[in-house]
Write a protein that binds this DNA or RNA. Structure first.
Length: 115
DNA sequence: ATTATGACTGCAG
DNA sequence: TCTGCAGCCATAA
Protein backbone atom coordinates (compact mmCIF):
# COMPACT_ATOMS: atom_id res chain seq x y z
CA UNK A 1 0.00 0.00 0.00
CA UNK A 2 1.24 3.35 -0.81
CA UNK A 3 2.52 5.05 2.25
CA UNK A 4 0.83 8.30 1.47
CA UNK A 5 0.31 10.76 4.23
CA UNK A 6 -3.14 10.43 5.52
CA UNK A 7 -4.48 13.91 6.15
CA UNK A 8 -6.51 12.23 8.86
CA UNK A 9 -9.65 14.22 8.06
CA UNK A 10 -11.13 15.67 11.17
CA UNK A 11 -14.16 13.72 12.21
CA UNK A 12 -16.00 17.00 12.28
CA UNK A 13 -15.70 17.46 8.56
CA UNK A 14 -17.23 14.14 7.58
CA UNK A 15 -19.90 14.62 10.20
CA UNK A 16 -20.91 18.00 8.84
CA UNK A 17 -21.03 16.53 5.34
CA UNK A 18 -23.26 13.73 6.59
CA UNK A 19 -25.63 16.22 8.19
CA UNK A 20 -25.85 18.13 4.92
CA UNK A 21 -27.11 14.93 3.30
CA UNK A 22 -30.21 14.82 5.48
CA UNK A 23 -33.16 15.69 3.24
CA UNK A 24 -35.79 18.24 4.10
CA UNK A 25 -38.71 16.96 6.14
CA UNK A 26 -36.56 14.26 7.67
CA UNK A 27 -34.58 13.99 10.89
CA UNK A 28 -31.51 12.01 11.88
CA UNK A 29 -30.16 10.91 15.22
CA UNK A 30 -26.62 11.59 16.38
CA UNK A 31 -25.86 7.89 16.13
CA UNK A 32 -27.15 7.72 12.58
CA UNK A 33 -25.07 10.68 11.49
CA UNK A 34 -22.06 9.11 13.14
CA UNK A 35 -22.63 5.92 11.23
CA UNK A 36 -23.03 7.68 7.89
CA UNK A 37 -19.92 9.69 8.66
CA UNK A 38 -17.99 6.49 9.28
CA UNK A 39 -17.82 7.09 13.00
CA UNK A 40 -20.32 4.44 13.92
CA UNK A 41 -20.58 4.28 17.67
CA UNK A 42 -19.38 7.79 18.42
CA UNK A 43 -22.48 10.00 18.59
CA UNK A 44 -20.74 12.39 20.97
CA UNK A 45 -18.43 13.48 18.19
CA UNK A 46 -21.47 14.50 16.20
CA UNK A 47 -22.57 16.80 18.98
CA UNK A 48 -19.12 18.34 19.08
CA UNK A 49 -19.06 18.78 15.34
CA UNK A 50 -22.48 20.40 15.30
CA UNK A 51 -21.26 22.84 17.87
CA UNK A 52 -18.78 24.02 15.25
CA UNK A 53 -21.45 23.81 12.58
CA UNK A 54 -22.65 26.90 10.78
CA UNK A 55 -25.69 27.91 8.74
CA UNK A 56 -24.33 25.77 5.92
CA UNK A 57 -25.35 22.74 7.93
CA UNK A 58 -28.97 21.75 8.68
CA UNK A 59 -28.08 21.10 12.32
CA UNK A 60 -31.76 21.43 13.23
CA UNK A 61 -32.43 18.08 11.55
CA UNK A 62 -30.30 16.29 14.10
CA UNK A 63 -32.05 15.06 17.23
CA UNK A 64 -31.26 12.41 19.82
CA UNK A 65 -32.34 8.76 19.72
CA UNK A 66 -35.37 9.61 21.80
CA UNK A 67 -36.72 11.77 19.01
CA UNK A 68 -36.30 14.81 21.19
CA UNK A 69 -34.16 17.91 20.98
CA UNK A 70 -31.09 17.43 23.11
CA UNK A 71 -30.36 20.07 25.71
CA UNK A 72 -27.54 22.34 24.55
CA UNK A 73 -25.64 25.31 25.87
CA UNK A 74 -28.08 27.75 24.27
CA UNK A 75 -31.66 26.97 25.41
CA UNK A 76 -32.95 29.56 22.98
CA UNK A 77 -32.15 27.17 20.18
CA UNK A 78 -34.66 24.56 21.32
CA UNK A 79 -37.83 26.35 20.15
CA UNK A 80 -35.87 27.48 17.10
CA UNK A 81 -34.99 23.95 16.10
CA UNK A 82 -38.54 22.85 16.69
CA UNK A 83 -39.87 25.69 14.54
CA UNK A 84 -37.45 24.88 11.74
CA UNK A 85 -38.47 21.23 11.74
CA UNK A 86 -42.17 22.04 11.83
CA UNK A 87 -41.68 24.35 8.86
CA UNK A 88 -40.25 21.36 7.00
CA UNK A 89 -43.26 19.20 7.81
CA UNK A 90 -41.96 17.35 10.84
CA UNK A 91 -44.63 16.96 13.49
CA UNK A 92 -43.95 17.08 17.20
CA UNK A 93 -46.00 15.03 19.61
CA UNK A 94 -46.62 15.70 23.24
CA UNK A 95 -43.47 16.13 25.25
CA UNK A 96 -41.85 17.79 22.21
CA UNK A 97 -41.18 14.37 20.81
CA UNK A 98 -40.81 13.33 17.16
CA UNK A 99 -41.97 9.99 15.79
CA UNK A 100 -38.70 8.60 14.47
CA UNK A 101 -40.57 5.66 12.95
CA UNK A 102 -41.93 8.12 10.47
CA UNK A 103 -39.48 11.00 10.18
CA UNK A 104 -36.15 9.26 10.65
CA UNK A 105 -33.91 9.67 7.60
CA UNK A 106 -33.00 6.42 5.87
CA UNK A 107 -29.66 6.92 4.11
CA UNK A 108 -28.64 4.60 1.31
CA UNK A 109 -25.43 2.89 2.19
CA UNK A 110 -24.21 3.14 -1.39
CA UNK A 111 -21.06 4.83 -2.59
CA UNK A 112 -22.16 6.35 -5.87
CA UNK A 113 -25.35 7.64 -4.46
CA UNK A 114 -26.21 10.83 -2.72
CA UNK A 115 -29.30 11.23 -0.67
C1' DA B 1 1.53 15.07 29.70
C1' DT B 2 -3.33 14.52 32.55
C1' DT B 3 -8.15 15.74 34.05
C1' DA B 4 -12.80 17.17 33.34
C1' DT B 5 -16.71 18.02 30.42
C1' DG B 6 -19.79 17.45 26.59
C1' DA B 7 -25.97 19.20 21.27
C1' DC B 8 -25.00 10.73 22.87
C1' DT B 9 -26.41 5.87 23.32
C1' DG B 10 -27.91 1.53 25.46
C1' DC B 11 -29.15 -1.08 29.33
C1' DA B 12 -30.65 -1.77 34.05
C1' DG B 13 -33.73 -0.45 38.08
C1' DT C 1 -41.86 7.46 31.84
C1' DC C 2 -37.63 8.81 34.30
C1' DT C 3 -32.96 8.25 36.60
C1' DG C 4 -28.33 6.42 36.89
C1' DC C 5 -23.98 4.06 35.14
C1' DA C 6 -20.39 3.02 31.70
C1' DG C 7 -18.16 3.58 27.10
C1' DC C 8 -16.50 6.27 23.24
C1' DC C 9 -13.63 10.48 21.21
C1' DA C 10 -12.43 15.51 20.90
C1' DT C 11 -11.69 19.96 23.00
C1' DA C 12 -10.38 23.07 26.78
C1' DA C 13 -7.65 24.20 30.78
Amino acid sequence: MSSSKQPAPSSHLVILEAVKRVPCGRVATYGLIAKVAGLDGQPRLVGYALRHATDEVPWHRVVNAQGRISPRADPACIPLQRTLLESEGVEFGLGERIDLRRYLWKPRLRRTDED
